[in-house]
Simulated assay, not measured.
Amino acid sequence: MSMDQAINEIEGYLLWEAEKDRARTRANAFCAGLPWLTDTQRREVELRYCQDQCDASRAYLERIAVRSATLRTEYESVYRALRRRLITAFLSGTVAVAALVTVAAIVLTAH
């Protein structure tokens, strides 16, 4: 595993832990608005709320990952096409300049 991969793994882990903490905080806040719950009910609601939040976050992140991969493929394709055009334009310009220099040299040596 490369250093970049290791850093990405650590970053992903830390981001997911922060997301779980956010879900727990939201679950606690939600349950605070339901003062009639017993302790057992509160724990159950918090657990289900956290699970629902984590499931929603995971689905959201998976959609983002798929879209990011799609965009990356599209952008790489556009980049390759632009690079080919630029190289073609540069080579065409070089050939044109070389042709002009050759014609100018022939004209100047003919006189």
Rank of each mutant, 00 (worst) to 15 (best):
R63E: 14
A69T: 07
I106G: 01
V101S: 06
R24E: 07
L14F: 15
Q51M: 04
E46I: 06
R24A: 04
A81F: 08
L47G: 09
L108A: 10
Y75S: 07
E17S: 12
E44R: 10
R63T: 08
T102Q: 05
R26K: 10
R22Y: 12
P35W: 07
A59E: 12
V107S: 06
M3G: 05
Q51S: 08
A99D: 06
Y49S: 01
D55W: 12
W36H: 08
L15R: 12
D4C: 01
V101E: 03
R22M: 10
Q41M: 13
R80G: 00
L14V: 15
E44T: 12
T109C: 09
T88W: 09
A81I: 10
L71I: 13
R80M: 07
E9Y: 15
A27H: 03
A6S: 02
Q51C: 01
L47E: 11
R67P: 00
A59G: 10
R58C: 13
L100R: 07
F90N: 03
L108Q: 08
R22I: 10
L34Y: 04
C54G: 01
E9K: 13
I7A: 02
V95S: 00
Q41T: 05
C54W: 04
R85C: 10
Q41G: 11
E9P: 02
L37I: 02
Y13T: 13
T70R: 08
A69I: 03
G33I: 06
V97K: 05
T88S: 09
L91W: 09
A27R: 01
L71F: 15
E74N: 07
R85Q: 15
V66F: 09
Y79N: 07
T40S: 08
S2G: 09
E19P: 00
K20D: 08
L61Q: 15
L100N: 06
T109Q: 10
R26Q: 10
S2K: 03
W16F: 15
L34P: 00
E74D: 11
D55L: 14
V78Y: 07
D55A: 14
L34Q: 10
T94H: 00
F90M: 03
L108E: 08
T70W: 05
R84G: 05
R84M: 11
N8M: 11
D21V: 13
A96F: 07
E76P: 02
D52W: 10
L82D: 09
C31K: 06
R63Y: 09
V97R: 03
H111Y: 08
N8C: 11
L82C: 12
R48E: 05
E9D: 14
G33H: 09
N8E: 14
L14I: 15
Q5G: 00
Y49V: 00
M3Y: 13
I64N: 00
C50H: 10
L34V: 12
A96N: 04
S92V: 04
V78K: 11
Q5Y: 04
E62I: 05
